[in-house]
Design a protein around this nucleic acid. Structure first.
Length: 591
RNA sequence: GGGCGUGUGGCCUAGUGGAUUAGGGCAGGAGGUUCCUAACCUCCUGACCGCGGGUUCGAAUCCCGUCACGCCCGCCA
C-alpha cells in the first residue's frame, strides 16, 4: 500500500500545484524523519518560495489548503508543518497494508516482462575461491534476487575464462608436472585444491626456472593459445579438462553460500562460433581503428579514454576484452538488459568495453556495472597464484563452528524448554554462520573497501544476520504457538480487524512493514542490495519494540486484538523473511 | 605523474542537498527475564562528518584545493 499511497500523494500534490499555477516537476516527496507523525512529506515549498514570493512555511500552508484529502482513499490528511507538507495515511492504508502483507510473496513487485542477465563472480578457474573475491558472488547473487523480486525475469551467468593465457599456463602445467613434482598436499580433498598446486607450480617454474626451459614451456603455452584461437578440437578438450575440473570444485564452494548459476558461459564459445572474429572485422572498419606496432587498436579518445584499446595482438590472436565484446553482443541479443558485477580493478576495462560496444552500434544503456572494492587482509591482498588469502571454505567452516558453539552455549541457559535435536543445532549453526558471513558483506556499500578480520566478520551480536534472523524465529515461534504453521504457502492469519492496532508500537511496525515493496523497488532501481540489509535492521528493531510492549498470546489479551496482532506478526514474518531471502540469508524457523 | 573510488566518535557502519543540534552497532558504564525464545530491551559516556576554502535560504551530501588510503594506467585476465 505504500507505493499506492505514494501515488496518491504525488497525485494530490500535482493537482494542488496546478491549481496554484505552480510548476509540478519537483514534488519533493520524501520520508519524514523519526518522530514526525506522517508517512510521506513534501519539501517542495522550499523551492517554490522564490516563485511565489512568500516564505516556505506559507507556501506549504497554501499547498496543504489546496489538497482535498477526502478525494484519496489512502490519505487521511495533508497538513503544513513548517516548510513541509505532511501526509498522514488513512485507516484504510493500515488495514490494506496488513491485508497485503498476509501473502507469503509480500514484497514481490508486478512482473515487468523484462529479461535481465546478471553476470557475476566469473572468477578464472585457477583455484579455490578465496575471500578476496567472495564479495562478487554474495553481492551478485543478491543483485539477481533483488531484480527478480522487482518483477524481472532474471538469469544468472558465470562467464568462464577458458581461453586466456592463464588457462593455457594451467593446462601446460597440469600436463607437464607430476604429483611428485609438487611440494605440498592439497589443503582439501577437492578438485580445485588439488589442481591449484599445478597452477602454482607452473607459475613458479616460469618465474624461476632456467631460461631455456622457460622458453620451451612458453612455446607449448603459445601453442595451446593458438590452438584455442583456431578452434582446434584436441586443444580445446585438453583445456576443458582442467577448466571443468577446477570449476567443479569452485562451484561446490559457491553453492554453500549459496550462489548458484543458470548458465556457465564459456569464453571459447565466442571463438568457436566466429563471433569474436566478426567483432574484430567490424572494429577494423571503424574510423577509430588504428594499426600500430603490428597490433590493431581502437582510439577511444572521444570517450575520454587516453589509452588505446588493443583488440588484436600482433600474432593475430584476440584478447580477453575482444572476446568479451562478442560475449556482450550475445547478451544484448538474448536479453533486454545486462548487469555485470565487477571488482574495482576492472573499471577501466568496463569503460573501454562500453565505448567499444557503442562504436559497434549497440545500445549501451542496456548494460550496467556494479563495482565493488576488494576484500583485503590486514597484511595485504589475497592471491590465488601466490597462495595468500583465506579460502571461502575455511571462512564458512569457521563461521559454522563459531555459530555452533554459540547455539550450544545458549542451549544451557535458555528459558524455554524446547528441545533442540542435534539436527536442529547443526541447521541453526549453518544458517547463522553462513548468514552472518553473507550479511556482513552484503550490508555494506560495495564501493567501500573491506579489510578482513575474523572477529569482525563473525560477530553475531546486534546489527548482524543473527539479530535479524532471531526476529524471524520469534515471529515463527509466536505463530506456531498460536497453531499456525508458517510454511509460507497457506494464509497465515484468519479474519482480523487491523483497526485494533492502535498503539504506537503497532502502528510503527505496520508502517515499516508497508515500506518493504518500496525498498525492493529502490534496491532494484539502484542495484544496491545493501539498502535491503539496512531495512532488515530497521524492521527487526521495530519488531523488537512491538514484541516487548505488545503481548500477542497472553491470557489477558482480548481475542480480537490477539487476532489482529497475530496478523501483524505474520506480516512482519513475511517482510523480514522475504527481505532475508533477497539477501540470500537463511530465515530460520527457530534458533 | 594521470584517472577513478573511499575518508562519519577508540573500532565498524547508515545517511550523498532539506525537519540532522549526524542515525545505528561494537567496545566501556548502569539497569531489565514469575510474562509469546535475553542471539533481546532500556538508560549513560563518546563525532567541530579527513583538512581548508566556496556555492546555497539550507552542505556530511554540490564545487575548488589539499592530505591519507585503495584500485587502475599490459599485445594479462
Amino acid at each position: 500500500m505504500y507505493l499506492q499511497f505514494r501515488d496518491d500523494v504525488e497525485d494530490a500534490l500535482t493537482s494542488a500545484l496546478e491549481a496554484l499555477d505552480l510548476p509540478t516537476d519537483d514534488l519533493g516527496v520524501e520520508d519524514p524523519p523519526e518522530g514526525v507523525d506522517a508517512v510521506l512529506a513534501s519539501s517542495a515549498a522550499f523551492r517554490l518560495a522564490g516563485e511565489v514570493g512568500a516564505p516556505p512555511p506559507q507556501v506549504a500552508g497554501q499547498i496543504a489548503d489546496e489538497i482535498d484529502a477526502g478525494a484519496y482513499e489512502l490519505v487521511e490528511a495533508a497538513s503544513a508543518q513548517g516548510p513541509y507538507v505532511n501526509f498522514v495515511p488513512s485507516d484504510a492504508y493500515y488495514e490494506e497494508t496488513a491485508e497485503e502483507a498476509q501473502r507469503a510473496d509480500f514484497g514481490h513487485l508486478e512482473p515487468t516482462g523484462e529479461e535481465v542477465v546478471v553476470e557475476h563472480t566469473s572468477a578464472n578457474p585457477t583455484g579455490p575461491v578465496h575471500v578476496g573475491r567472495a564479495r562478487n558472488p554474495i553481492v551478485g547473487d543478491a543483485v539477481a534476487r533483488v531484480l527478480s523480486f522487482a518483477g524481472h525475469d532474471v538469469d544468472t551467468h558465470y562467464y568462464v575464462n577458458d581461453a586466456g593465457r592463464q588457462m593455457a599456463v594451467f593446462t601446460w602445467a597440469y600436463e607437464t608436472f607430476d604429483e611428485a613434482d609438487l611440494d605440498s598436499e592439497p589443503e582439501r580433498d577437492k578438485a580445485d585444491y588439488d589442481l591449484v598446486r599445478y597452477y602454482r607450480k607452473g607459475n613458479d617454474f616460469l618465474e624461476n626456472a632456467d631460461p631455456d626451459e622457460v622458453e620451451e614451456a612458453e612455446d607449448e603455452i603459445q601453442a595451446i593459445m593458438q590452438g584455442l584461437e583456431e578452434g582446434d578440437e584436441e586443444t580445446y578438450q585438453r583445456v576443458q579438462e582442467v577448466v571443468d575440473t577446477v570449476l567443479g570444485g569452485m562451484r561446490e564452494s559457491l553453492d554453500r553460500l549459496p550462489a548458484e548459476f543458470d548458465e556457465f558461459v564459456k569464453e571459447t564459445r565466442f571463438l568457436r562460433d566466429g563471433s569474436a572474429d566478426d567483432v574484430v572485422t567490424r572494429l577494423k572498419e571503424l574510423d577509430e581503428a588504428v594499426y600500430e606496432e603490428d597490433a590493431w587498436q581502437l582510439d577511444l579518445d572521444e570517450y575520454g579514454i587516453e589509452k588505446n584499446f588493443v583488440f588484436l595482438r600482433s600474432d593475430g590472436t584476440t584478447l580477453y576484452a575482444t572476446r568479451d565484446l562478442a560475449h556482450h553482443e550475445w547478451k544484448f541479443d538474448n536479453y533486454d538488459r545486462a548487469v555485470t558485477v565487477l571488482g574495482e580493478d576492472h573499471k577501466l576495462q568496463a569503460r573501454q568495453m562500453n565505448a567499444s560496444l557503442d562504436l559497434l552500434g549497440n545500445d549501451t544503456d542496456q548494460l550496467r556495472q556494479v563495482i565493488y572494492s576488494y576484500v583485503n587482509l590486514p597484511e595485504g591482498k589475497m592471491s590465488t597464484r601466490a597462495g595468500t588469502g583465506i579460502d571461502l571454505d575455511d571462512l564458512l567452516d569457521e563461521a559454522i563452528d563459531r555459530a555452533r558453539e554459540e547455539v550450544e552455549t545458549r542451549l544451557d541457559d535458555r528459558i524455554r524448554d524446547d528441545d533442540l535435536t542435534d539436527e536442529d543445532v547443526e541447521r541453526i549453526a549453518e544458517q547463522v554462520g553462513i548468514g552472518a558471513v553473507r550479511y556482513d558483506i552484503v550490508s555494506k556499500q560495495p564501493t567501500k573497501a573491506i579489510t578482513f578480520e575474523w572477529d569482525r566478520a563473525l560477530d553475531f551480536e546486534a546489527q548482524s544476520a543473527p539479530y535479524v534472523q532471531y526476529v524471524h524465529a520469534r515471529c515463527c515461534g509466536i505463530l506456531e504457538e498460536a497453531g499456525i504453521t508458517p510454511d509460507g504457502s497457506s494464509d497465515l492469519a484468519g479474519d482480523f480487524d487491523a483497526s485494533l492496532l492502535e498503539t504506537e508500537a503497532e502502528r510503527e511496525l505496520l508502517e515499516v512493514v508497508a515500506r518493504f515493496p518500496a525498498v525492493i523497488e529502490e534496491a532494484a532501481e539502484d542495484l544496491e542490495p545493501h539498502v535491503v540489509a539496512t531495512y532488515t535492521r530497521e524492521i527487526a528493531e521495530t519488531f523488537n519494540t512491538f514484541y516487548r510492549e505488545c503481548p500477542v498470546l497472553a491470557d489477558d489479551v482480548d481475542e480480537d486484538l490477539r487476532d489482529a496482532r497475530l496478523a501483524l506478526v505474520a506480516a512482519s514474518k513475511h517482510a523480514v523473511g522475504n527481505a532475508l531471502q533477497v539477501l540470500g540469508v537463511a530465515a530460520p524457523r527457530s534458533m
